[in-house]
Design a protein around this nucleic acid. Sequence first.
DNA 1: TGCTGATGCGTTATGATATTACATACAATG
DNA 2: CATTGTATGTAATATCATAACGCATCAGCA
Lengths: 162, 162
Amino acid sequence: MDTIGFEQHDHKSCVQGALSAVEAQCAAHKLQFTPVRRRVLEILLSEHRAMGAYEILDVLRDEGLGSQPPVAYRALDFLVSHRFAHKVERLNAFIACTHPGQTHTPAFLICRNCDAVAEAHAEPTRGILGKAADEAGFAIEQAVVEAVGLCPNCREGHPACA
Amino acid sequence: MDTIGFEQHDHKSCVQGALSAVEAQCAAHKLQFTPVRRRVLEILLSEHRAMGAYEILDVLRDEGLGSQPPVAYRALDFLVSHRFAHKVERLNAFIACTHPGQTHTPAFLICRNCDAVAEAHAEPTRGILGKAADEAGFAIEQAVVEAVGLCPNCREGHPACA
DNA sequence: TGCTGATGCGTTATGATATTACATACAATG
DNA sequence: CATTGTATGTAATATCATAACGCATCAGCA
């Protein structure tokens, strides 16, 4: 399972591993990992890309798991608030966390050509930004770091990219 | 004029200075700084906060400068693409650049209590993220860095905050 | 002058994203 | 079994954004 998500990997075990990890987390913290929530996470994990809420909703609807926007948004809120998934603000889309359970500040590398998204780490409270925040007296609680550019495949005109 | 925007400052001269700088930039690059574009920038500068496109449109409409969404969005596109303003993805809102003309990667400190936004600098291609991108073969072209937290005024229960 | 192309604006319509509000289901608990 | 809290179902609506078309203006030029 890769943290930097542009390479090939064993997708099936990657999905399974993440699901198990989330299950364990939910059990440990007495969170209700309901069918809808589970299914939404599975969809995100198996697609392994950023998906819009309505795109997820389409899948749920086909499966009879819900048909109105709040169903998808509520499940996504649960996943995002417990950090099992993240919202990519730049795309107004959601993506499964590639390392659930570990505390981290996710940072995303978003390909402007094929929309592939890889999750990396950032440490916004360090470096220039953290210094500026300190000086301003601003208390950073959470950060969104999203870099837009070209993924390795698209840089080489790889067929994997649409 | 402050770069970290939570403190008091000479607002009038701050607005004037930014407008002059943008005017000069437009003249130098043969960009059309039309009445609508100018007015939208003035609105953003004078409010000194992140505003939604429709909020800006309301002002334009009252002034007879345009009444339909594309008018506001086109002006904002112009301002954003030339970096005279920035989009705050987290808020789906726009804010005037506090130092137009200087090349920079803007980073925002967003107060979750009063929605005040300060612009700081970031250097996403350095640090952990830059390293991860390099290793992944990802070419960062542009980055969104937005930190959510509490501004100094709200930390102290300052009356300036709603 | 009159043509032509480029750019910006006006307007209608629609698409895409997200939330409010209220009703219902259902499991855990006393 | 009544109560409570959490999750879900559904209708309606709010909010954010763009497509597509036509017109106005203006610069460059024959």
